[in-house]
Amino acid sequence: MKNVAIIPARGGSKRLPNKNILLLDGIPLIVHSIIFAQKNAAIIDAVYVSTDDAKIKEIAIQYGAKVIDRPSKLAGDFEPTVCALKHCLEIINDKEIESVILLQPTNPLRPENLLQETFEVYTDKSCDSLFTVTRNHQKFGKIVGSEYIPFNYEIGQRSQDLEPIYFENGLLYITKTKAILNDEIITRNAFPYQVNHVFSTVDIDTKEDFDYAEYLLKKSKT
């Protein structure tokens, strides 16, 4: 059975124009995910980039990825990612593909052994999907009218005593092909794999996010 990596990268970013091709550490943002996939060739049989953008397509091919041309109707601001994945699988049309590794280009920094570790768990647990999460230690609340209502704590409670709460960090998703074809990335029996690494705090959507990623990347090299 085969496993493929799919990197969805449309060209229509609003808050940070052309973010998927901005240079991070000297190479386009999207290339960090391509290289991560290529370094895991023992697990990943092929690397695909789904895009509607000619420049992204050119860069992806230059760095050795295969490209699936995404139709404009699947590249809108509100189009779910699963639609792009499903379109890729339908175009590739390979019945031997068992699982898809989704790598979002906006999460370019990942611990080196992340895929090896998660794929082992994904296989051992026999689940239909796995996604990465990170514990959050902040105190959250809602504002209703002019009243602040704590969500995950009581006023005066110490941060270290909070009930554990986690966020979907976007670093990595592994999903059975059959689930994606049924419009699911995170399935009912998905395994939440905890990642306690500073890279899990990077999700690039603004210039400030990009600068933070650049800072962490430089710091990690020293």
Rank of each mutant, 00 (worst) to 15 (best):
D128G: 02
L22R: 10
E208F: 10
A9C: 10
L85H: 05
A213Y: 01
L89F: 04
K125C: 10
S146H: 14
I43K: 08
F36A: 08
L216H: 09
R188F: 09
K19H: 06
Y48E: 10
V31E: 07
N3I: 15
V49D: 10
H197A: 02
I186N: 03
E98V: 00
D52V: 06
V47F: 09
I180K: 09
V4S: 13
P28S: 00
V195C: 02
K2N: 15
Y153K: 04
Y48F: 14
T123L: 11
K95W: 06
G170F: 04
E168N: 13
D209R: 07
E120A: 13
V67R: 09
V47M: 05
C83T: 09
A179K: 06
K2M: 15
K142S: 14
R15E: 14
E79L: 12
K86H: 08
I186P: 02
H87K: 05
N18L: 11
E90L: 12
V100F: 12
P17T: 00
D209S: 08
G145N: 12
V31C: 11
K142E: 13
N107D: 01
L24W: 02
V144R: 15
I97P: 13
L103F: 07
F167C: 06
G145V: 10
T187S: 00
K218E: 11
K57W: 06
R158L: 14
E79Q: 10
N107S: 09
G26R: 00
T206F: 07
P80N: 04
F191E: 00
I27F: 00
G170Y: 03
S159G: 05
F140G: 13
K221Y: 12
V144F: 08
T201D: 13
Q62L: 06
A179I: 03
S13C: 10
G76L: 07
I21D: 03
F167A: 01
A54I: 07
Y63L: 03
T123K: 14
G141N: 10
I68H: 04
T51H: 07
T201G: 04
V67D: 11
E58H: 14
F36Q: 05
T177C: 09
L162K: 04
I92E: 02
L130T: 05
E154S: 15
V133F: 07
S159C: 00
T118W: 00
T118I: 03
P108E: 04
R10Q: 12
N40D: 08
E163L: 14
V144L: 15
V100Y: 06
A37F: 11
M1C: 11
V202L: 03
H137N: 10
L22A: 06
N20C: 01
N182M: 09
D52S: 03
S200H: 08
H197L: 00
Q116W: 11
Y215Q: 12
R15W: 02
T118K: 00
H197K: 04
T187D: 01
D128L: 01
R188I: 09
P164W: 08
G11I: 00
